Simulated scan of single mutants.
Amino acid sequence: MTGRRPRLGFLGTGWIGRHRMAAILEGGQVEAVAISDPSAEMLDQAAALAPGAARVDSLDAMLALELDGVVIATPSALHAEQSIQALERGAAVFCQKPLGRTAGEAEAVVAAARRADRLLDVDLSYRATAGMRRIREVIAGGELGHVFAVDLVFHNAYGPDKAWFYDPQLSGGGCVMDLGVHLVDLALWVLDFPEVTAVSGRLFSGGAVLRPEDGKVEDYALATIELAGGTAVQLACSWKLPAGCDAVIGASFYGTGGGAALRNRDGSFYDFVAERYRGTSREVLAEPPDSWGGRAAANWAGRLAAGAGFDPAAERLVEVARVLDRIYGR
């Protein structure tokens, strides 16, 4: 890629795909060469962002253009297969979460990236909020002492609007796969990925405990994760919860030297406040405005433009997926 901008293809140009596409292209470090989506309307909107990009009808046709990278925003059941196909053709990958429906699928993608020596990342976007970055810095600097408890929530007053989300074969799971993945990732990432010693989960659908034979996905979930060193992580997530607002999102970390927490403001999906706690006092670490949504995607594009190959940090994606498997009892 010396002397030219990386050539990218965008596979899936719905709302999230176009949002990440805009963030990636904004810096001018890469070139949009191809776009693909089953919806002509979505393609038209993506073409407005990249008028010179070719419209193609498949990943095969996209990869035939000898791309440097592919941005994947397709249904979850396709992520692992499409990522591996791109990597084996020499293209770096930025994929929407989850990377795979199971840890086995995620592990296969990471192995393909390692073999190909290609940059792989997943859109675990809440890591990129200014608030979570500051909380991670505070904890890494020892300001909270030993972090012994972590509480995380992601409740959504709505649910996905596409049918495949509700088919466990296509989605791999419900609100845990959709929202809980962010919570598990934040807990492990902020604490620098300690060993997970135990996981338990309880899943509900329509207010009833979900059984494997029900053939449904969960719309409410509770989980407890025990980490080496005795840290206890508790998380709850849901779709269509009557929470009195659009969303309740939070990540709280409590240590022997104080606490820190990220909270969404006024039910927003986008506005977050991070605070540091000392007894009954609090200090603001970060607050809106913060344009964080496309930050992870733009960072991947910048690293690709700088010539980055496989990053061993991608192996952490498998650790997150293994925790999800254990929540589901797999």
Rank of each mutant, 00 (worst) to 15 (best):
V153F: 12
A22V: 12
F272A: 04
A260S: 10
R55V: 11
P98G: 04
A260Q: 10
I84V: 15
L227H: 14
L186P: 09
F269S: 02
R276I: 01
Q96K: 07
G255I: 02
D167L: 00
V138N: 05
L317Q: 02
L222M: 10
A80Q: 06
S39A: 05
K240A: 09
D121I: 02
A113R: 07
L304Q: 06
W15P: 05
A22K: 15
V318R: 03
E213L: 06
V284D: 03
Q169T: 08
L170K: 14
R115V: 13
R134P: 09
L179V: 08
P75S: 11
G145S: 06
L65V: 04
G159Q: 11
G172T: 09
L11Q: 12
V138Y: 08
A313H: 05
E226W: 01
A91Y: 06
H182K: 10
P98W: 02
D121P: 08
D246N: 13
L63C: 08
D123C: 11
L67V: 07
V323E: 15
A64I: 07
A23S: 14
A50L: 04
A251G: 11
Y270Q: 13
F253S: 07
V147G: 06
A130R: 09
G142C: 13
A274W: 02
K162A: 12
G104Y: 05
V71N: 10
Q234N: 11
L203T: 00
R20A: 15
S76T: 11
V109R: 04
R330E: 14
G215E: 02
L241F: 10
P168V: 14
D161N: 15
R115F: 02
H182E: 05
R4W: 00
A92S: 15
R316W: 02
K97N: 07
G255F: 03
E287Y: 03
G279W: 06
S205A: 15
A286V: 09
D57F: 01
G257T: 11
T74F: 10
G173A: 08
L188Q: 09
P6A: 03
T280I: 06
D161K: 10
A111E: 12
G3N: 04
V273K: 13
A91S: 04
